[in-house]
């Protein structure tokens, strides 16, 4: 138990101390943004990493979560916390529907990836055209500071909320990986026919995975809205977030519990640093981003987690010698 959950608890507890040490708004801003990306990536990792179903369209879930919370508040005055909970449910439902349509018809691999991309793009175009969503002008959530409205004057409060969500999903991911459901996810990823022969209802497992995955990424979208209080179609459903959600786990270590978090931290950490030192060159952070991805795939296919594991085994060998 301690072996399984200890590192996660230590990491989250350590991160929770950061706002006490650093109070600079720019840094806290960066941390909140990186945590939102980490959360979206954790969602992607459940489906892509654990169940092996690569999605190129997690924006569909991020955006659905984001729009649900934004529109419930602006159109019907629903309380922000209630809207947040509903947005997670609705994003999960969108995941289930997309999963049902694609897995029922047996889509796998790149076909599944392309279909998710298509869904996200269709949603983006619809959201951009509709007046209900504010169209191209976007939607502003009314500024009304106060814990009851899920709006905080202090950025530290947001860091802790985002961290609580990321921590919860991290613990839940470890619990899943150690459960029967986790074994079935892995079995589906490794070999669907063999899984079926062993009594695994592969369709049900994949549907559960995409629903969970979408709910988590939807929570990231809702959190984004709550922090920035603004949303438009290209933020909600744009390819940027689909890419963020899938690159972070790949860089961090696909199918590992910590991968999405380490990946998001590494990508955005490096991104910020280069902006700091070479801020004059527009898009320099994106260039670095691409370089990191290429380097990972070429030299560390198991991501940062794989590198850490290799390092650990090298030290082990030294010690036993």
């Amino acid at each position: 138990m301690i072996r399984a959950y200890g590192p996660a608890i230590v990491l989250i507890a350590a991160a929770a101390l950061v706002p006490f040490a650093i109070t600079a708004n720019t840094v806290l801003n960066f941390i909140v943004f990186a945590l939102i990306i980490a959360l979206a990536a954790q969602g992607w990792n459940v489906l892509g990493g654990l169940a092996g179903q690569f999605s190129f369209g997690h924006a569909a879930f991020f955006g659905s979560g984001a729009y649900t919370t934004a529109l419930l508040q602006t159109h019907w005055g629903v309380n922000a916390w209630v809207a947040f909970a509903l947005s997670i449910l609705l994003a999960g439902a969108v995941g289930w529907i997309i999963g049902f349509l694609s897995f029922r018809s047996g889509l796998r691999g790149s076909y599944f990836a392309l279909v998710t991309l298509a869904f996200a793009e269709v949603l983006r175009i619809l959201a951009n055209a509709s007046t209900f969503t504010g169209g191209a002008a976007g939607t502003l959530v009314k500024l009304d500071m106060g814990p009851a409205n899920f709006q905080f004057a202090s950025r530290a409060a947001f860091v802790w909320i985002a961290l609580a969500l990321v921590g919860f999903v991290l613990i839940a991911t470890i619990a899943i990986m150690r459960s029967r459901f986790g074994a079935w996810l892995t079995a589906v990823r490794e070999n669907e026919d063999a899984a079926r022969a062993l009594g695994v209802d592969t369709l049900a497992v994949k549907l559960k995975a995409i629903t969970l995955s979408a709910a988590i990424t939807g929570a990231a979208g809702a959190l984004y809205v709550q922090y920035y209080l603004y949303l438009d179609a290209s933020i909600a459903y744009g390819p940027w977030i689909s890419i963020e959600a899938l690159v972070a786990p790949i860089v961090g270590g696909i199918g590992t519990a910590f991968g999405p978090i380490l990946g998001a931290a590494a990508l955005h950490g490096f991104g910020e640093l280069t902006k700091l030192f070479a801020g004059g060159i527009p898009g320099i952070d994106l260039v670095l981003y691409g370089l990191l991805l290429i380097a990972t795939i070429a030299f560390a296919p198991d991501g940062i987690m794989g590198l850490l594991k290799r390092l650990a085994s090298v030290f082990d060998r030294r010690r036993t010698r």
Partner: peptide, 16 residues
């Protein structure tokens, strides 16, 4: 044969 190639022997059998 259709092993779950990424898993260990005991993990393979545990799925069953």
């Amino acid at each position: 044969v259709q092993p779950f190639a990424g898993l260990s022997v005991v993990e393979n059998i545990a799925v069953g």
